[in-house]
Each structure stands twice: as C-alpha cells, then as structure tokens.
Design a protein around this nucleic acid. Structure first.
Lengths: 209, 209
DNA sequence: ACCTGAACACCGTTCAAGT
DNA sequence: ACCTGAACACCGTTCAAGT
C-alpha cells in the first residue's frame, strides 16, 4: 500500500518507531537505516532529510527509551506520593522491568553512542531528568529517615544504586548470570535482594509493584 | 612486507590480536573481519578458515577479555593470600580498571553476543571461572568474619557485587555519570564508596591496590 | 589444511534531480 | 522542505580454485 501523498507526514517519528520495532524483532544487529526506511515505506535516502546519520537515529531511539523510563517513574511518584521508600523500590523494579521487556531498546538507550552532547540535546535532557528523579527520591528517603545516610554523599549513593540496577539489568538481559541462580531465583527476587544489600532498607517483594 | 610462507603460521591468534587492536584504536564500530584480515596481512576470506563467522571472532576476543580479568584476579590472590577482604577490594578495582583501560574490549567481553553456549565453549569456561573466583573470595570473607553474611544468600551477594561493579564500569566508560560528579570524584573513589555501601566492609582507598 | 579472488547481497552516505 | 534513484565505498559470507 503506497502512500497517498508525496510527503510522508511524520517520517521522522515513523523511522523512530520502525527502529524500535526492528530492535524488538531482530535485535541490535538487525537495525539499519535502510531497513527502517523500508518499513516506513520510503526510499533508503529519505531518512537523511531527518537524521544526519545513523548515529542520530540511534540517539533518537535512545531518547525515547529514557522518556519511557521517565514516564514510569512519574507514574510511580503519583501513585505513592507520600511514600518515598516505596517510590524507590517500585521505581527500581520498573526500571529493571523495562530492560527485561525491551532488552535491545534498553541496551541502545545506554549504549553510549552519544558522543558530542551538542547534537543530541534531547537525549541529554531526558537522561538528566531521570537522574534528577532518582536524586529527589533518595533525598526524600533520607529526610524521611527510611534510608541510611550514614556518612555517604547522596550523589554517590544515587550513582551506586543506579550502577547496581544497570549492571544487574544488563547481566540478566544478556543471560550472563549463573544458570543455576536463574533457575531458582526470579529477576524480582534478585533485584529485591540487591537493593536490600545496597541500601539497607526494609522493603519486601510487594513493595516493588 | 609480505609473508615469506604461504601459510601464516598462527593466523587465528593474529586475527584475535588484530581485533583487539582495532577495538582500542577505532572502537566497536570499527571492528570488521575484513579489517582484521588486512591487519594480519591475509585476504578477506582467510579468516573463515579459523572462524565460522564474525560472531566467532567476537567470541574469541570476549574469551580473551575474560582471560585477562582472570589473570588479574589470580595475581591478586597470590599477592594477598591470607587477606580475603583485600582480595575483594583489590579484585574489584582491578576489574573496573580493566574496563577503563580497554573500554571497547571490556564492552565486547560482556556484550552478550554469545548465543549458543555450545559453539563458544572457551568463553563459557572462562566466564564461569571468573564467577567461581568471586564466589571463593566472598566465601573466604564470610568465614573470616570480615563480610556480613546477614541472612543474605552468598550467591545473591556475589551476583549483586558483580552487578554493581559491571554497572558502574559501563556508566563510567560510556560517560553517563553526572559530569559534576566525574569532575570532583575519581573512579577509584566511586568504586570505593559503592563497595562500602554494598558490602558494609571496612576498607580504605589503599586497599584497592 | 590453509589461503586467494571473484561474486553476491547488504549497508551507510552523498548528490543531482524531481515535487 | 521533503523525497527518489543512481552511485560509491565498505562489509559479511560463499565458493571454486590454487598451494
């Protein structure tokens, strides 16, 4: 079914969605500008009207990943407005779940392909907002007395928790955890245990949802 | 300078070394079978005598990464034979340092491109040995009373510590930590703080070396 | 067993040209 | 402004043929 008009209408967004679909169906290796163009029903050169190069399409897909994570955080903050500890627990699990549900979208989001921050303003914007949300949740947990400050700088605490979740998510996605553990211990239990070890917080499995 | 003999002699290893060099000089995106072949001074089809496909060259490079990490662990275990806590601290920092020194080699080592474990026996072998070393160090720390067991399964403790180091390493490699933190806090301090939060161990900066 | 050269399908990118 | 088609350099992979 060919397009009715010469102009696509919203090719830029169509290419981003096509890219995300390719990631889901074929993984990182299957992503190409030409394939995204084919899916959007345009010629292989058309994407260059909207993206300077492949890198820029990837940056747009990565921005979308950050945006989706941000949306999940915001939903949780609205859901538990007076319970920062629960925001931390549920936010952490939502973050990991996004990685498990869309492994290659998650991977590309944090693939570090973004070189000059200048040409990827949107990506920088969203990633900083995600970091800011984590900072705020941790600050609220600390002032509510449900998270040990314990002489540790709160920025280092935030970065450590993020690093932990990021590392576990990737190890799970890429099936690099010991197979014996995977068989007996669902992802949720791994995240729960890791969070408890890291942050010394009293949370249970229910609080992750 | 062309080869003297028709046969290369050790082409397989030469291709692996060429690949590692390409990763260091041009990064992940620059790695191709043809380029590795060019560097080794053979035709672009020659690698197929030693690797079924590109994936298998990558698996060999990833195995080499695991091997190098394993060697560093073993050096440390020999250096501090009666001090498991120091083995943990110095081993952790050695792990992160490898990632910082050879970012793209580290990334490819844990890129999860290994699909069927059958065709990559060497990779599986080395990665399991690394996990086993971590398990042993943690077991020794726990029985020496320098690491809180605290009701947490030691396998989950090992995986959490690994996840933390892996996540932080990747975030640092890919420059995704807040730039303000990077400016004021060297990688070593980040790792030290993260380890202290995670494992509740009393270590100082000197013990990382 | 180990390597070469030609061949094919695919990709990123550019550019003159069309609407 | 937005898109097409031809063109070029590059890549992964295969295969018949050479040593």
């Amino acid at each position: 079914m060919p397009r009715k008009t010469y102009h696509h209408g919203n090719l830029k967004n169509a290419l981003i969605q096509a890219g995300i679909a390719i990631l889901a169906e074929e993984g990182l290796g299957g992503l190409s500008l030409r394939k995204a163009a084919r899916r959007a029903g345009v010629s292989h050169a058309a994407p260059y009207a909207h993206f300077a190069d492949k890198q820029n399409l990837i940056a747009a897909i990565a921005s979308d990943g950050h945006k989706k994570i941000l949306e999940r955080f915001e939903t949780i903050r609205v859901k538990y407005p007076d319970n920062p500890l629960r925001q931390l627990a549920a936010g952490a699990w939502a973050y990991v779940k996004f990685g498990l549900q869309a492994p290659d979208h998650y991977r590309i989001t944090f693939s570090g392909v973004i070189q000059d921050e200048h040409s990827h303003a949107e990506f920088i914007e969203y990633s900083q907002r995600n970091m800011q949300v984590l900072r705020e949740i941790i600050a609220q947990c600390r002032s509510a007395g449900v998270l040990d400050a314990d002489g540790v700088d709160s920025e280092l605490q935030a970065v450590s928790i993020w690093g932990l979740l990021h590392g576990l998510t990737l190890l799970m996605i890429q099936k690099q955890l010991p197979s014996q553990l995977i068989k007996t211990c669902p992802p949720k239990d791994i995240v729960l245990s890791a969070l408890q070890q890291m942050a010394r917080i009293s949370i249970n499995k229910r609080m992750l949802d």
